[in-house]
Structures are given as C-alpha cells and as structure tokens.
Amino acid sequence: MKVFQTIIAVVLGALLIYAEADFPAWASSKSPANAGELSQYYIKNIYDETLVPNMVTAVLADYRGYDTLFETVVVFTAGLAIFAILGTGVMREKKTAVPAPKRIYSEPPFDLIVRISTRMLVPVIQLFALYVLAHGHHSPGGGFQGGVILAASFIMLELSSDLRAEAAKLTHRMSIWLGIIGIVIYAGWGTLSLFFGGHFLDYDMLQALFPLDPLMARSHSMLIVEVGVAFTVSSIMLLIFRQLVSGGYSIPDKQA
C-alpha cells in the first residue's frame, strides 16, 4: 500500500515538472502575471488614489477590502469551531480510552526568573505590536501582523504563570466579544458609507463625516479597518492557544 502511494506521488510530481516546461522564466518582467494590466495599474496608481506608500496594505484594505473582511470572519469561525470541538472538556460519551483527569491543573512551579523577565518583556512586545499595526501604511506591517504579535505577548504571559489565573482575568467570553467587536468595526465602517450614498466599503463617501479630501479619507479608513482585523486576530489566536493547551479545561464547568 505504501509503495502504491509513493508511486502515485512520484508520478504526480513528474507530470507537474513536465508541465512546467511551458512556464515563463522566473523573475522576468514579461511574464503574464507581471505584465498584465491589473498589476501595472496597481503599481502606478496606488499612491495617487490612496496616499498610502505601502502597496500591499493599500490593496489589502482598500482595493480587496471585501476579501479581507471575510478572511477575518473565517478566522473567527475557526475559533468558534475549536470552542465547539474542545468546549468545556466534559464529554458526553460513555467510554473514553483516556479518562478525564481528576485534578485539571497542578500549580506550575514558581520560577522567579521566568516570571520577572516575562513581566519586563510583555509591555515592550505589546508596544511593538501596536507600532506595527499603526505603521502599516508606511512600512511592512498592518492588522494581521500586529494582531498575531499582540496574541504572542499574551501567550507568553500565560505560559510563564498559572493559566487558570490568567484565564480568569481575560475570560473566554471577553475573548469572543473582542473577536466580534473586530468584525463589527470592519463591517460597520463599510456600512457607514452606505448611509452617505456610496457602495459598501466605499471609503470616499466618508468625506461627509470628516472634513477631508477623499484620498485622506481612504487612508484613514484603512487604519480603522486594520484595527478591527487586529482585534479579531489577536483574541482568536489567544483563544485557540488556551483551548489547545488545556484540552478544553481552562474554563470552569459552570461558566460558558
């Protein structure tokens, strides 16, 4: 059986390499992906239309804003799915091969050096995460990167001290609420422009709210939308970590 699988994989690889003879050379400017109209338009016109120097953030949050909204929803749904699978840890099946542990947690050993150094590092990491989020316009960065680094700072805090005590400070309910707030910020900002006569996620129309020209309105709206993305990504990554590391037992039975 294994030989059969290996043969299938090798044959597939050989066919793909044979088909690659028709590819254009790597890194040529004349390949259809690089010489096509769409990418030429983006490279030439992004600064004139949005006043944002970072091309990737502009395309992500403005030109392809609809895609990014639903990527955020997908991340949130994955968090909900993990919550549904691992849940509160109490399982309804009668027979489990590995019995549920009686004592869920032993207190982690108190290690002074780890705790003190984590306490010193975590504010710096969070400041850096907010910096990455806010400077997405001018340097590589944005909502996704900032959100993940923010989640990493909380994960570090929970790794170095008692998980249950930290989970009581930032509860599961709060994590899910923060995830929802992120999506509401994003979709709400898009809906706001419907009230001024524009399309959904059309940031031009918001010049009626603030006294700005349409280009600056787009630039600022991108920042607000990235803040929404960062809320959702950071809280959901933290939720996934908690559920995975405790096997679902990080919340008491009576609290949902």
Partner: peptide, 16 residues
C-alpha cells in the same frame, strides 16, 4: 510583508 507574517505566525504561534 509575507516574510513578516510568516515569521510571526509560522515560526511563532504555529510551533506553540
């Protein structure tokens, strides 16, 4: 940008 995201996500959170 892709490198930044891969460093934060792939080498950080995914390993954890």
């Amino acid at each position: 940008d892709v490198a930044f995201t891969e460093a934060a996500v792939g080498a950080g959170v995914s390993t954890v």
